[in-house]
Design a protein around this nucleic acid. Structure first.
Lengths: 195, 195
DNA sequence: ATTACCCTAACGAACGTTTGTTTATTATAT
DNA sequence: ATATAATAAACAAACGTTCGTTAGGGTAAT
């Protein structure tokens, strides 16, 4: 009965900002837009956040952490490369679809981070991609996957998935699991020797 | 000796703007940024263009036309669906790599078009995607391609290609043709029954 | 039970700067 | 001499952010 409606203003600001950043882009969203969308004055935002960029930082690095954590769990398990790739894709898509707005912002607004944060962000992204690269290389060594440019293939794979948030409609017929099934089927059966 | 350095100021403005829009985004690029990058004053831009948005419109609809024209040539030819898909992808990638900066702007800045232009843009994009969808459906009828959600597969395919401009380096080892070969190999051999 | 104090969250007003664009004027090239 | 292209100066509007203040509620001392 003490605190009920006030879950957390800061969190509400970030959630509302996420939706506006997705719809209009970070640079094209003003603090007055955001404040009006919440129902307060622009100045009031600064009782809860330090700056506009802090909001973007929170969104981007929260997503980055989610992606990393979900992948690291899979890395430890013992299984064949094609199974591992499939699990990695499923986990990636699960993170992606849990908050589609945040994912969209994560993938297309990160470049507006200031330099110090940008550097960290790109390092993390590269590390993440390389975990996928390693799965493909292992799969090739195991004789499961064709010879290929692993980095190139990973970028193609992740690209085809990452832009789902911009067109995926949850009320549509495909569940996250269906999507993962579809994508990995196309990619894995295209990568496997013979089949 | 008549007109030499002045190839066309308007075209130069659009080219320079393309590079800035790619690097910083449309909303985060000011007319003073653009003017300084060219070496003139911001006011001087308006001797050649009507508005900032006109630049974006020119970039977006020029690219859209290029994509359409290249695909329409292929549509008329008679060949099997997998051949046709491959040719369509190659042609798509050729347009894409001809001007990587313009492509990047085309794919991520179109949402800043004003409503009237936005509507046209989305209609064109949807028509373009549907041409690919039709190829997949035909391929299924011919018994070449698996049963699948054709629209979903097209979006995945185009996504994996369309974001190449953001990471593709022309000085790298892969030519546009190599890329088309790689992408279509992964997709087609994953879509084909048996193989 | 009242007073005094502090804290949080919100406010209106204003800060200095930057935005896209217009105007009136000057320089350049044909 | 005429048309074209560049300019400096200025415009209103919007930008992110800071300011001083206020209202309300809790806490502690009287």
């Amino acid at each position: 009965m003490i605190t009920k409606t006030k879950v957390n203003r800061k969190q509400q600001i970030i959630e509302k900002a996420t939706h506006l950043f997705q719809k209009q882009g970070y640079a094209a969203t003003s603090m007055r837009d955001l404040a009006g969308y919440i129902g307060i004055e622009a100045a009031s935002l600064y009782s809860h956040i330090k700056s506009k960029e802090e909001i973007l930082q929170t969104i981007c690095f929260q997503m980055a952490n989610d992606f990393f954590e979900s992948l690291e769990k899979i890395e430890l398990e013992e299984m064949s490369a094609d199974e591992k790739l499939k699990k990695a894709v499923v986990s990636h898509i699960k993170v992606l679809t849990k908050d589609r707005a945040a994912s969209a912002v994560f993938f297309s607004e990160w470049r507006h981070l200031s330099e110090a944060y940008l550097k960290d962000f790109l390092t993390m992204r590269n590390n993440y991609e390389n975990k996928f690269v390693q799965i493909l290389i292992d799969g090739h060594k195991e004789g499961i996957f064709k010879k290929m440019d692993a980095k190139f293939t990973v970028l193609a794979l992740l690209s085809s998935i990452n832009w789902m948030p911009s067109w995926y409609k949850p009320e549509g017929k495909l569940s996250p699991e269906d999507i993962a099934e579809n994508v990995t089927d196309v990619f894995i059966n295209g990568l496997k020797i013979r089949s």
